[in-house]
Lab assay of single mutants.
Amino acid sequence: SDYEVNVNGIHHRFHNISEELIKFIEEALRRGEDLREIIKKVRELLG
């Protein structure tokens, strides 16, 4: 049904976003950045 496609589409989009965010955060932590600064950047990215 349309509803299922829609829900799956939304889930898929969020899954991709969270994968990208996790990579972004892991790389920043590897560079020794402060978690609070990383979260601030993530918030800015998400608008």
Score class of each variant (00 low, 15 high):
19 E>N: 11
38 I>G: 00
11 H>D: 05
5 V>I: 12
16 N>Q: 05
2 D>F: 06
16 N>R: 05
6 N>F: 04
33 E>K: 10
1 S>P: 04
9 G>Q: 02
5 V>N: 01
7 V>F: 06
32 G>R: 04
44 E>A: 12
22 I>E: 02
33 E>Y: 14
13 R>I: 15
8 N>A: 06
32 G>S: 11
14 F>E: 00
13 R>H: 15
17 I>S: 02
44 E>P: 06
33 E>W: 15
1 S>I: 15
47 G>H: 11
42 V>G: 01
30 R>T: 09
23 K>V: 11
21 L>T: 13
15 H>Y: 10
46 L>H: 09
14 F>D: 00
34 D>T: 10
22 I>D: 00
19 E>K: 12
3 Y>M: 03
11 H>F: 14
45 L>W: 11
40 K>A: 13
33 E>M: 15
43 R>I: 07
2 D>V: 05
41 K>H: 10
27 E>W: 15
21 L>N: 06
21 L>P: 00
35 L>P: 09
5 V>P: 01
15 H>Q: 13
2 D>H: 07
5 V>L: 05
6 N>I: 15
27 E>V: 12
12 H>E: 05
26 E>Y: 10
38 I>R: 01
19 E>T: 09
33 E>G: 07
15 H>R: 13
29 L>V: 11
13 R>E: 15
42 V>C: 02
36 R>V: 08
1 S>H: 14
5 V>S: 01
2 D>M: 04
41 K>V: 10
35 L>M: 07
16 N>C: 04
34 D>M: 10
5 V>E: 01
41 K>C: 04
28 A>R: 11
22 I>F: 06
11 H>Y: 15
43 R>C: 03
34 D>P: 13
2 D>S: 05
46 L>W: 13
8 N>S: 06
1 S>L: 15
35 L>N: 02
17 I>T: 03
43 R>L: 10
8 N>Y: 00
22 I>V: 07
7 V>R: 04
2 D>W: 08
14 F>S: 00
47 G>M: 14
40 K>P: 05
21 L>C: 06
31 R>N: 11
24 F>A: 06
42 V>K: 01
18 S>T: 09
15 H>V: 09
25 I>K: 00
7 V>A: 07
17 I>R: 00
20 E>N: 09
45 L>F: 10
43 R>F: 12
47 G>S: 12
30 R>E: 11
30 R>Y: 15
46 L>Q: 14
43 R>G: 12
34 D>G: 13
29 L>T: 04
10 I>A: 08
15 H>P: 11
17 I>C: 02
24 F>I: 08
27 E>D: 13
1 S>R: 15
14 F>Y: 02
40 K>S: 09
16 N>D: 07
41 K>P: 00
7 V>S: 06
19 E>L: 13
19 E>Q: 13
28 A>P: 01
16 N>K: 04
35 L>A: 09
8 N>P: 02
9 G>C: 02
14 F>A: 00
43 R>A: 13
46 L>V: 14
25 I>R: 00
18 S>V: 03
44 E>I: 12
36 R>D: 10
12 H>T: 04
13 R>S: 13
4 E>A: 03
36 R>H: 09
39 I>Y: 06
39 I>L: 09
38 I>Q: 01
11 H>R: 14
46 L>T: 14
32 G>W: 07
16 N>F: 06
5 V>A: 03
17 I>A: 07
38 I>V: 12
17 I>H: 01
24 F>M: 09
46 L>P: 05
33 E>R: 13
44 E>Y: 15
39 I>N: 02
16 N>G: 13
35 L>V: 14
32 G>V: 04
41 K>Y: 15
23 K>H: 12
47 G>D: 10
46 L>D: 08
43 R>S: 10
15 H>C: 04
4 E>N: 05
19 E>I: 10
21 L>W: 05
21 L>F: 05
12 H>I: 14
3 Y>R: 01
43 R>W: 11
6 N>Y: 06
9 G>S: 03
8 N>F: 00
41 K>N: 10
19 E>F: 15
31 R>H: 11
36 R>E: 07
10 I>C: 06
22 I>Q: 04
3 Y>K: 01
30 R>S: 10
41 K>S: 11
8 N>L: 03
30 R>A: 06
33 E>T: 12
10 I>L: 09
19 E>D: 11
16 N>V: 02
39 I>K: 03
15 H>S: 12
1 S>C: 06
18 S>L: 03
18 S>M: 03
24 F>P: 01
24 F>G: 04
29 L>W: 07
39 I>R: 03
5 V>M: 04
30 R>W: 15
21 L>H: 06
17 I>G: 01
20 E>W: 15
26 E>F: 11
41 K>G: 06
24 F>S: 05
22 I>C: 01
44 E>R: 13
34 D>S: 07
23 K>P: 04
18 S>A: 04
7 V>M: 07
45 L>A: 10
5 V>T: 02
12 H>W: 08
1 S>A: 09
10 I>H: 15
10 I>Y: 05
16 N>H: 06
